[in-house]
Simulated scan of single mutants.
Amino acid sequence: MYRFLLTPRWLGILALTLVAAAVMVLLGNWQLARYEERTAVNERIDAGSRGTPAPLRDRVPAPTGGAGTTGPAPAEQAEWSRVTATGRYDPSNVILVRGRTVDSTVGFEVLAPLVLADGSAVLVDRGWIPPAPGGGALTAPEVPALPTGEVTVIGRVHPTETGGSGVGRRDGRLETRRVTVGKLARELPYPVHGAYLLLDEQTPANDPAFKAVPIGHANNWQNLGYVVQWWIFAAMTLVGYGWAARREARRAAGLDKPRPPVDRAAEPVTPA
């Protein structure tokens, strides 16, 4: 009954079916890897919220170059962990990051370099503030003054962002769209660590005008849904081939005979 499967036509159909199923399985495997990556990120975020702060240098390598250079990026395991650092803020190089949304409102995140005892700096995200009243979303905000003297901060290690346009200056402040540490470092007169800190605590205390920047979890369940979807598609492709082959075999064996046409003229007419 199934000898027809060895004909060129059906061998071609089988080859296409297997290729399609294999591609769908590979796509499912790729989404599974993405799910595992995002799950690991979420676990680091959750662990960082509970962890005891470690010294900055235990999590983020110190820069070894000169002014305007960037230090190595932290290891993945160090991302989102809590660290502490002590230094002095540089008020002449405050950084505005425009187009940032908190609580459905577009505003600015404000970064300031914290210059450490060895002369290097780490960028500290002080938090989010809205634009100045009466203007649009890109109107420069009223930025609270930096504390003077020695400051101790506790913050989360945030990996550098990528992309975005260049860095410019407005009203004496650096301004950018993305916190790309390498680009910002080229505008600063000292070497900069290869990640920045989301401020959790500060001594003396941070200005209450700032809102803490929330850390969003990655949507790993979406990737898991894609895994199931692609693997189901692969199974359906194979089942569809089997169903088509069985139907063809039954037709060739005369088991699936076409039904005779219905003679509508012979049907009795029901009087109105």
Rank of each mutant, 00 (worst) to 15 (best):
M24N: 01
V213N: 06
G163I: 11
V153Y: 10
E175A: 11
Y2Q: 02
T160M: 08
V122M: 12
E150H: 01
V143G: 02
N42E: 00
N219Q: 11
L14A: 15
E187N: 06
V124R: 03
E161A: 01
A266P: 07
D103V: 10
G240P: 14
S120C: 06
G12M: 10
H193I: 09
L27E: 05
N219D: 15
F210A: 10
T7D: 10
G182E: 12
G182A: 15
R251M: 07
L11Y: 06
P74E: 06
V181F: 12
V239L: 14
G87W: 02
G254W: 13
E142T: 14
R259G: 08
Q77E: 14
D118G: 08
V143K: 03
L255M: 09
K211V: 11
G127W: 07
G240C: 05
P214M: 04
P144N: 05
L6M: 09
T70C: 02
R178V: 13
Y196R: 03
G87N: 02
A205P: 08
G166M: 11
L5P: 01
V94P: 04
V60T: 03
A73D: 04
M1A: 15
P63S: 06
E37N: 12
E248R: 10
V262S: 02
Y190G: 00
F108L: 07
F108Q: 02
A137D: 13
V192E: 00
L146Y: 01
P63I: 08
A121Y: 04
P204F: 12
V110Q: 00
L224M: 15
R100I: 03
L27F: 05
I13Y: 15
V41G: 00
P268G: 02
W221L: 12
R88Q: 10
T176S: 15
S49C: 07
G166N: 09
V25I: 13
N220H: 14
L32T: 07
L123Y: 03
R88S: 10
A140E: 13
T176M: 12
P55M: 06
T70K: 00
P133I: 04
L188T: 01
G68T: 00
Y2W: 13
N220M: 09
K183D: 14
R170W: 07
E150W: 04
V122L: 07
D90K: 04
W221T: 13
V167K: 06
Q222C: 08
P189C: 12
S49P: 02
V124Y: 03
R246D: 09
A132R: 12
S92Q: 15
G135I: 05
P189H: 04
L18S: 02
R259W: 13
L96M: 09
L14M: 11
V60M: 11
L224G: 10
G28Y: 13
E142L: 08
V239C: 10
D103H: 06
T203E: 05
P260K: 02
L96A: 05
A15R: 12
L188E: 00
P133H: 08
W230F: 14
E76W: 07
Q229E: 11
T69W: 13
T203S: 08
W230R: 05
E36W: 12
T101K: 14
A140Y: 08
P208H: 07
Q222G: 14
L27T: 03
V122F: 15
T39V: 11
T64G: 05
G134L: 00
R170Y: 04
I95F: 04
V94G: 07
S104P: 01
T160K: 02
G107A: 08
T176P: 06
E187R: 14
V262H: 07
